[in-house]
């Protein structure tokens, strides 16, 4: 009976794939494997595992190394810091605050004019050689965004987004920069103007290129 033979030889398959069997038993197991595809498949699976064993260092398996208990907090701190920096842009903290105040003042001034075209926004963060200005307009379905920009790397694709207070970004769409002239792109994001704290543009690597505070 094949089942009986399997019951007899299966428990030897571990020692078989590890080369631990005596000659007689090895030959007997081999004979069974030649006749039984089920055990052959099992031996093949165990063989793959056996081939991995040499890579382990047995002196390391007694106990798992653990990081210091405060690593969880340090992970959260680091992400929290990055979250704050993202909201502020690349500028140092003091400069970022100043930029936010200026942007607020500009927005307030334009807002008082009650322009139907929306409010103008200034990009406090922009690389050298790039000129950009934006406009955001609060609509029933979200926020319409218009950006006029020149000097970005031609051919590169840029993503436009609005940022929520928690640091989450709501995408407004993408555009491709054109060489040598100013372009105007109009996009939209499904986030009310009042819920956005910043308008940003990032490159394909995800790095923020332009950032305007909306608060």
């Amino acid at each position: 009976m094949r089942d009986e033979a399997c019951r007899r030889w299966r428990p030897s398959l571990g020692a078989y794939v590890l080369g631990q069997l005596g000659e007689d038993e090895r030959i007997a197991v081999q004979a069974h494997l030649d006749a039984c595809s089920g055990c052959r498949a099992e031996a093949a699976e165990l063989g793959t595992v056996a081939r991995l064993l040499p890579s382990a260092d047995p002196s390391r398996i007694e106990r798992a190394p653990a990081p210091r208990p405060d690593l969880a907090d340090r992970v959260l701190d680091r992400v929290g810091q990055a979250r704050r920096e993202r909201t502020r842009g690349w500028l140092p903290r003091a400069a970022a605050t100043a930029a936010a105040v200026l942007a607020f003042a500009a927005g307030l001034f334009l807002g008082l004019r009650g322009d139907d075209a929306g409010e103008r926004v200034t990009f406090g963060v922009a690389p050298a050689g790039v000129t950009a200005e934006g406009r955001v307009r609060d609509l029933a379905w979200g926020t319409e965004i218009e950006i006029r920009v020149a000097g970005l790397e031609a051919g590169e694709r840029y993503a436009v987004w609005l940022e929520e207070p928690g640091g989450d970004r709501v995408p407004a769409g993408t555009f491709r920069a054109v060489s040598g002239r100013e372009i105007t792109v109009t996009l939209a994001a499904g986030l009310p103007r009042g819920s956005a704290v910043a308008l940003g543009v990032s490159d394909e690597e995800g790095a923020t290129v332009l950032l305007a505070s909306l608060v």
Binding site: A64, P67, L71, V75, L76, G80, A159, G166, R169, V170
Partner: peptide, 26 residues
């Protein structure tokens, strides 16, 4: 662009991801 929910969005997401995988990554 944004397919579904962003991973590790909140502090709670991060905490649970760390609890689950931090030790292994270390």
């Amino acid at each position: 662009m944004r397919a579904g929910r962003r991973a590790l969005r909140t502090e709670a997401d991060l905490r649970s991801a760390y609890a689950e995988h931090g030790g292994e990554l270390y």
